[in-house]
Amino acid sequence: MGAHSVRQLAIFLLSVAVLFGAYVMTFGMPAQVSQLVGGAPEAGGNAGANQAQAGRGPGGRGGRGGNRATSVVVETLEETSYALVLRTVGTASSARKSSVTMSETGEVVEVALEANALVESGDVLLRLDARTQRLSLDVAQAELDQARDTLARYKTLQSSGNLTVTNVNLSEAEVAVRLAEANVGMAELALEERTIVAPISGRLGLSDVHVGDLLSSGDVVVTIDDSSKLYAEFEVPERSIGLLEVGKKVSVGTPTYAGRIFEGQIVAFDSRLDGVTRSVTVKAEIDNSEGLLWSGMTFLVRMLEETDPLPSVPSTAITWDRSGAGFWVVTDGKATRRPVTIRYREGDRVWLDTDVEPGAQIVTEGASKLREGAAVSDLSAEQRANS
């Protein structure tokens, strides 16, 4: 036999020895091998003792044919609440904001647009050249005065018995007065629109409008932000939409004020999920009466909700087979596998849906060694008894 063949034989024998050693460590020494090694069993009680010894494996576990209980760690099934925490990023925007836009065309003759200045609703922001509009108002007013004088004269003549003024003449004079009044109203409105006022109270943004500029209809003059309240707009993923409720509290932070938390509440959320991101847009209102927060800031949003108490076990208690997840329940020293649905997982603990009642004894360590109906012994209980 060549050196190569001897090496192959040695490797084969070593592999067999390793596999046999692993089998013995896991399932114990087979009874037949034990009898060959230890000799024929003695009669009477010694034979039974030898059989028990042969069926005993490492760690006090029985082999496939042994009757000894499998040592496991058992824990009482308890119910605890799970804290659902959602963390996301949002953007701040003013609760009330306005872009002041021109509705008329004209030359700027007066400006009050200092950046970051606080203004009240109705404050004058700028004025346009209004000479034409004032002249139009004067013409309209003069026509109204003339129409009223004519109507008054007709009424006087008719009341004195003058037959030259008919009811038709009087009616036409009354219509002329109403038309003249409407013309005056339109002229006043045209003159009023030459003055641009703040539509809301708030803080002015930057503006590049100056005296002498010619503005056209549709030009944006300035923005105004009322930041006494801000909206934090953020996205919530589909898996967390159960947290959404109008009035629900949220906590927000910003890198500008690291470590400080601002409180708010949800005021609105979209009615459908985004088809691409599979998320829903949420808007929360944040009190900013101190004026610390600015529109456009990045917010770190946190939402928290505790569930109703749910059965909770260490993740080591969960085993898997073709039917799905499950754990082992110990009743009268016997193990029975029961199916479960994992609701939440955090660290080394899971929260479950199961029909097993709280207080049941659950195998938390050693579950992978069990078979249906296997006898078990609680290792932790034995250790407590020996201590």
Rank of each mutant, 00 (worst) to 15 (best):
K248Y: 07
G259Q: 10
L293E: 00
M303P: 11
S295N: 04
T281Y: 04
I261Q: 07
L293S: 01
I241C: 07
L300N: 13
R260W: 10
E305L: 10
G264K: 03
V276W: 04
V252W: 01
E305Y: 08
L243R: 07
L273N: 01
M303R: 05
F269E: 02
V236C: 13
P255K: 08
S312Q: 11
E245C: 06
W294E: 01
F299S: 00
E306Q: 12
T298Q: 09
F234E: 11
Y231D: 14
E305T: 05
S279L: 05
G259A: 14
L300W: 04
P255C: 10
V236P: 06
F269I: 03
V252H: 05
I261N: 05
E290P: 05
G291M: 00
A232R: 07
E290R: 13
V301L: 07
R278Q: 08
R239Y: 14
S295K: 02
V276E: 11
P311I: 08
E306M: 06
I286N: 00
G259T: 13
A258P: 07
E238S: 14
A317K: 07
G264D: 02
M297S: 03
D308W: 07
G247P: 09
R260M: 14
S251K: 11
V267E: 07
T316I: 12
T307S: 15
A317S: 15
R260N: 09
F262M: 07
V246D: 08
F262S: 04
G259D: 05
V276L: 06
P314G: 14
I261Y: 08
E235H: 08
V282R: 01
G247H: 14
I241D: 10
K249F: 07
G296K: 01
E233L: 12
I286F: 03
K249Y: 06
S295E: 05
L293Q: 01
S251M: 10
D270I: 00
G242N: 12
K283A: 03
V267Q: 02
T256C: 00
A317E: 12
R302G: 03
S312F: 00
L273D: 00
D308T: 13
T281N: 11
N288L: 04
G264F: 00
V282K: 02
E245M: 11
A268M: 05
G242D: 15
T281G: 01
E263H: 08
Y231M: 09
V280Q: 04
P311M: 09
T307E: 12
Y231E: 12
